[in-house]
Each structure stands twice: as structure tokens, then as C-alpha cells.
């Protein structure tokens, strides 16, 4: 119980710090918001991140692709939310209290991505980012912009435009 509470507080702190950062640094050339999905760390360029909201009940949208978990109301705007686990063909899990929705701007549209946990905001210089491997055992490499190396750990940098690309959406709907 106390662990969970602490966890929540931590998350709150990170979120707050992150929002401050989002507000203060408009440029953020090589800064990435990192998060985890299935114990793997991923990163998204900070400039495409609009907002981070806690997980909430989504409204199911009939006839939409399976990876669209539903839509949510963000101050009067309707925003579709996707689960990258489905997109990346991973095992689906129940969302819990640490689940977070990152609202990103992809292809001029605001979309939400459900992630297990928000981790950090990291600066990764471009010379520390390697090209995506041709083959990845975890996710399809077409969604990956590169692999960033931070100290000893690796961060998979995602291409938000591709993970929510229109053609894909159509294919899956069909």
C-alpha cells in the first residue's frame, strides 16, 4: 500500500517536473521523454509531447482499428488513444494506476499513447543514437527511429508519426 502510494507520488513528481520542462523548453532538440512498456525503456522526442495525463476510462469507439483503445475527453477535445502493445504485437495487460497516457502530436493530430510508466526526461546527443537494427525481437523496426545509449542503458526511440500512421490504421481496420 505505502509502496504504491510512494510510487504514485514519484510519478506525480516526475510528471510535474516534466510538465515544467515541457513548458520551459520549447526547443529541446535532442531531449526525449522516456517511459516503459513491458520493462523496456522507450523514448519520444520531447517536442512532439503535448501533455501527460493519468490513465482513465476510455470510451470505446466502434469500428475503429483494434489498437485504438478508445477516445477520451481532454478539455472538450476528443482524442483517440492507442495501445502500443497491440501495435507492437505484445501481450496485452490490464492497465493499473501507474499507467499513463502521453498525448503526442503525430501527423498534425493529437493522439494518446498508453504506457506502463513514465520514467524520465533525458538528453541524448545524436552521436549516442544508433540506427535501428534491421531486425528487432521486440517490436517492428519500422516504428523505431534509433537506439539511444545513456550510460549503460538503452532507450528505444520511437517515431510517433509511424506508430500512428494512417495507412496502418486503415490496414488494421480492414
Amino acid at each position: 500500500m505505502s509502496d504504491e502510494k510512494k510510487n504514485n507520488e514519484d510519478r506525480g513528481d516526475i510528471k510535474e517536473a516534466l510538465m515544467n520542462l515541457l513548458n520551459s523548453s520549447a526547443t529541446g532538440g535532442n531531449q526525449f521523454v522516456t517511459f516503459s512498456i513491458a520493462n523496456e525503456e522507450y523514448g519520444i522526442e520531447i517536442k512532439s509531447v503535448q501533455e501527460i495525463v493519468g490513465h482513465r476510462t476510455l470510451t470505446y469507439l466502434p469500428n475503429s482499428p483494434r489498437f485504438v483503445k478508445g477516445i477520451l475527453n481532454l478539455r472538450g477535445n476528443v482524442i483517440p488513444v492507442m495501445d502500443p502493445r497491440i501495435k507492437f504485437s505484445m501481450q496485452e495487460v490490464e492497465y493499473d494506476k501507474t499507467s499513463v497516457i502521453i498525448i503526442v502530436k503525430a501527423n498534425q493530430k493529437n493522439v494518446g499513447i498508453i504506457v506502463d510508466q513514465i520514467k524520465d526526461v533525458l538528453t541524448i546527443e545524436s552521436n549516442h543514437i544508433e540506427d535501428a537494427p534491421e531486425l528487432s525481437d521486440r517490436i517492428d523496426s519500422k516504428f523505431i527511429n534509433g537506439i539511444g545509449k545513456v550510460g549503460e542503458k538503452f532507450v528505444i526511440i520511437l517515431d510517433v508519426n509511424k506508430i500512428f500512421s494512417h495507412e496502418d490504421a486503415q490496414q488494421l481496420a480492414a
Partner: peptide
């Protein structure tokens, strides 16, 4: 009516939300 196309795309059977 909030259009879905704005942030998503047209969904069959649905006018919007």
C-alpha cells in the same frame, strides 16, 4: 458534434462524438 477526423479519421457508422 466533435469530429473524429480532427484527431483521428472517419469511422464508419459514426458521425462523431
Amino acid at each position: 458534434i466533435k469530429s473524429l477526423d480532427k484527431n483521428f479519421e472517419k469511422v464508419a457508422g459514426v458521425t462523431g462524438a
